[in-house]
Amino acid sequence: MTRLPSTPPAQLDANALALYEKITAGPRGTTMLDDQGVLVGPFNAMLLSPPVGDALQELGAAIRYRSGLSARAREIAILVVAGHWDSAFELRVHEEIGRGLGLTEDELAALRTGAPLELADPGEDAVLRVTRALVTRADLDDPEYAELGESVVFELTTLVGYYATLALQLRVFRV
């Protein structure tokens, strides 16, 4: 059972309501709302501290919508983190996105469990290997570091940290 209150928008204070409106007006739209109009997943928790929640959701929007990673590569990385943290909410949401991008059920299962997986696209395969190294060792060796280029390594380390943060929050708040 969740530890977070399900506060309808009409009951939010001015700062939380402003953040709620920013989240729901952005690229995520109303996909993160329940049938009562309450934010679900990590977004409901962000309303607990609107200044921090806003910064966190802005980082998430940059990772999801302004990254140099391809959509499939980004979802592969997100699913590696979600699987590593056993984050049911993130797995459910991002597996559905992954299916829409052509990831197979076998690929999704391997991303969820950490099972061996070789992807046909060399860039996606490199993202998979590097992300797995980041979540298991919290570091990269020199060949892994050099494999994707510094800007991609920067984006992947940011993505791993962001989704690990969400997984932790989802676990603690029992979402």
Rank of each mutant, 00 (worst) to 15 (best):
V153P: 01
A25M: 07
E96V: 09
L103C: 15
V130D: 09
A18N: 11
A71S: 05
M46S: 07
A25W: 06
E147Q: 15
L103M: 10
V38I: 01
V153E: 04
Y163I: 08
T131H: 10
L156D: 00
G37S: 10
Y145W: 14
G37W: 08
A45L: 14
R66H: 09
R72D: 02
R64T: 06
T113N: 03
D13R: 08
L148C: 00
A10P: 08
V40I: 15
D86H: 14
A109G: 05
Y162Q: 15
D13H: 01
P42C: 03
D86V: 09
V130S: 00
G37P: 12
R112C: 00
A120E: 15
T136G: 11
R112W: 00
Y20E: 09
A164T: 15
Y65G: 15
D86W: 12
A45P: 05
L79C: 12
E118W: 02
Q169S: 08
R66T: 04
R92Q: 15
L91D: 09
R28T: 09
A146P: 09
A120C: 11
S67N: 03
L134F: 13
Q169G: 06
I76A: 14
F43W: 13
L47H: 12
A71R: 02
V127G: 06
I76S: 04
A62N: 06
L69D: 11
L159T: 10
A62K: 10
Q11R: 15
F89V: 10
G37C: 02
R74L: 03
G149C: 02
H94I: 03
G29F: 00
V127I: 11
L159K: 07
Y65T: 08
V130P: 05
D125W: 06
S87L: 13
V160Q: 04
A138C: 07
D141F: 01
P5D: 12
V130L: 14
F89D: 05
G26Q: 05
L117S: 05
Q36S: 13
L148Q: 02
D139L: 09
D34L: 06
V40Q: 13
L111E: 08
A164S: 15
A77Y: 11
A16L: 00
L59V: 11
